[in-house]
Design a protein around this nucleic acid. Sequence first.
DNA 1: CCTATTACAGATATATTTTATCCGTAATCA
DNA 2: TGATTACGGATAAAATATATCTGTAATAGG
Lengths: 161, 161
Amino acid sequence: MNLKNQVEWALHCCAVMMALPEGVYLPAKVLAEFHGVPKEYLSKALQALSQHGIVIGTLGPSGGYRLARAPDQISFLDIVEAVEGKRSTFRCEEIRGNNPCVPRRHRAGKPCTVARIMWKADEAWRESLRGVSLTDLAAQLAEDVPDDVLAKSRAWLLERA
Amino acid sequence: MNLKNQVEWALHCCAVMMALPEGVYLPAKVLAEFHGVPKEYLSKALQALSQHGIVIGTLGPSGGYRLARAPDQISFLDIVEAVEGKRSTFRCEEIRGNNPCVPRRHRAGKPCTVARIMWKADEAWRESLRGVSLTDLAAQLAEDVPDDVLAKSRAWLLERA
DNA sequence: CCTATTACAGATATATTTTATCCGTAATCA
DNA sequence: TGATTACGGATAAAATATATCTGTAATAGG
Ligand code: SF4
Ligand code: SF4
């Protein structure tokens, strides 16, 4: 059970886009080169973000992507769910319906205990991601990443925006 | 991102094995028929449980599986991790190392902020599963499942144990 | 108006993982 | 001895993730 690598890419892209000045857009091509990932496939992830209203994409030269709202209004969960989907990781195949001792009653009934427990764990995962915003990420990054690397990256990106 | 269906099967099998009297073993064949799933593939899940010390398998006629310890000493997490593995669902491909502005320093460094946040969410998921034991499940099942179904299932299984 | 650039949607191809089956071996019991 | 079982490894089929390719429409700038 693995998350798609697009999740990682999308998160990094959003982190990078926080540095954009008002009205400036970053093309997928640049984001792909910056992260060293295939442009075409990364585009799919960015389009997913766009469809979920997390980023805004504009066409034409000087077009590209930027965040659709303030970083403190974008959570990790928003981003993860945009590319990974909202469905629970636990798939219930209703195998209790195969129990030879159960006539019919149970089958269309409410989800069983096992499923509820698994879904609750899933919700705990989501809740954890819901609690972290891009602003939180930025604060941590400022501590972790040396200032010169941050500045150089910023300059590298703006040159190509 | 989906959990394997073996997870669901393993959980149901453990639930069923709680009903076994001391010293009695339930063959994979019976468990498979009871749940309506392919025996060969279910066996793989049961072997995983066995390797992780959650169930005990014995050979020969009247052999099969039973729980290796008391139900209150077996958590959902034990079972899920046995078949799904212990690794985080978030795979870090170290794409920050591809950043053209980073020389060398960063690359072998500690895991970055993004990864830590994702791993923490993963841990929240595990913590949730760690908090539920088979005993808890049994209590819930007693409420959810009608008594006659429970009794009939029990009888059906013991006939074939 | 023209051209280069871009996001976007859809089709296709490849790789990896999940799902499932098959077979041979060893242990156990009657 | 013979039937039954778990176990491990090899293999096959299906589903999903990964990646590429194509064409279209919008847009900025000349
Ligand atoms: S998890 Fe619950 S609802 Fe799903 S198959 Fe098992 S018993 Fe049925
Ligand atoms: S998640 Fe962190 S450690 Fe992993 S690639 Fe991204 S920056 Fe690097």
